[in-house]
Design a protein around this nucleic acid. Sequence first.
DNA 1: AAATCGTATTGACGTGGATCAAAGGGCTCC
DNA 2: GGAGCCCTTTGATCCACGTCAATACGATTT
Lengths: 244, 244
Amino acid sequence: MKSVIPVTVVEIKAACSQCNLRELCLPFGLDPREINQLDELVGARRKIKRQQHLYRSGDGFEAIYAIRAGSFKTDVILEDGRDQVTGFQMTGEVLGLDGISTEHHSCNAIALEDSEVCVIPFGRLEELSRQVESLQHQFHKIMSREIVRDHGVMMLLGSMRAEERLAAFLLNMSQRFTVRGFSPSEFHLRMTRDEIGSYLGLKLETVSRAFSRFQDEGLVAVQQKHIRILDTPGLKRLLNHHNN
Amino acid sequence: MKSVIPVTVVEIKAACSQCNLRELCLPFGLDPREINQLDELVGARRKIKRQQHLYRSGDGFEAIYAIRAGSFKTDVILEDGRDQVTGFQMTGEVLGLDGISTEHHSCNAIALEDSEVCVIPFGRLEELSRQVESLQHQFHKIMSREIVRDHGVMMLLGSMRAEERLAAFLLNMSQRFTVRGFSPSEFHLRMTRDEIGSYLGLKLETVSRAFSRFQDEGLVAVQQKHIRILDTPGLKRLLNHHNN
DNA sequence: AAATCGTATTGACGTGGATCAAAGGGCTCC
DNA sequence: GGAGCCCTTTGATCCACGTCAATACGATTT
């Protein structure tokens, strides 16, 4: 348990204009004046400890969240207990879009590590995006991107074999780390094999075995959650040249 | 081939105000004056013959489409030829949202039968939804609904067995027919076993066998594409009581 | 530094759905 | 209204992944 530390005002209030993630996030494409307007509506930041929920399925929907630091998973749970991880989210990505349709969230968002989000009250976002065309458009792009991403996951779940799924996953992670200024070839996964498996529609043992196979073939070096990609073209080949 | 019939003006121009699908579609929640504004931006209707593309992956994005009559499938195709059906769309549903994120479509939309869509130029939709709050909100709901739907498909593909997937599919179709005023228990599928299989991540033989099993168990009566659901609770039981 | 617990790896074996194959059956298009 | 072709069904066999089980590893706690 953390001891009680006085929180300074600058920490409480989000400020897109100062944020180095703004090129990935909602402010993308806005001019400085417009970003200031966005600053005014973005509420306080909220810290979420590892394993804690940002929101739960069924919660009323009031805001969307931009990830300021850390990472999350989203999942859906069936009555009989089965669950499916629907995505992993990194800094600059937006959480909570599922809640718009029914005014209630339809999935759970759980922090994979101690994280921080910017709270964006949705009513006020709609209001501002009626005034700021570029914000409106960027928001629509973010929603559309989520739809396109989901189609990619369907392709993966519906038509790929285990090793292809894992290769696609690793390449995707690599690409997203790269965009954020990290190494494309070496990174730390924040999720367990079980969570990767759930996302990829595989059992954790199958994920583990696929990692081992990749390691044997010299494609990656795996040490628990630490991944070093040794042969990116090799991984890509696994995806495209499916022996049909 | 239909003979050449002179097309009247009222047929050419879409008119949401006259459309019996407006409660399912973009005009939902708008007052009569607002619907008239929407009428003005919705372009001509466009007829798409069975098996023809409404748009293709890679096409530039200019408009979204509301299905006025008929039905569609969307699919994604990989370089190696594998394809994945990402959805089936019915009247009142909106197609093309995938194109917003990159200004290009990322999937194909193909008519399952002779169909007709209303063309909604996207730039003008954004413009109007800056002025009409209820339109803006309805549009956001439609996009969000698509995201939630996709999560459901991921759940299906990632954690369900073949018969559960087909049961979920049938119940979903039934529900959507019901909303449109058709029988919940008796309907005609417009897609082939192969397309159902692609959507559900199964081979067509598996789909066919699952249908036969359902028939043997008295859950449904299947005659090619004509489906009669005999035991809805039975199908639901298949879904929820997964013997874990 | 030992104890504990969650996470990961690896092996042996079972099975659900894929694959291969063949035979009808019903649309579609002349 | 008939020919051809696509679609569907069903059977036999195979294999990728799931299941069950044991062990090992690493991080955290005490």
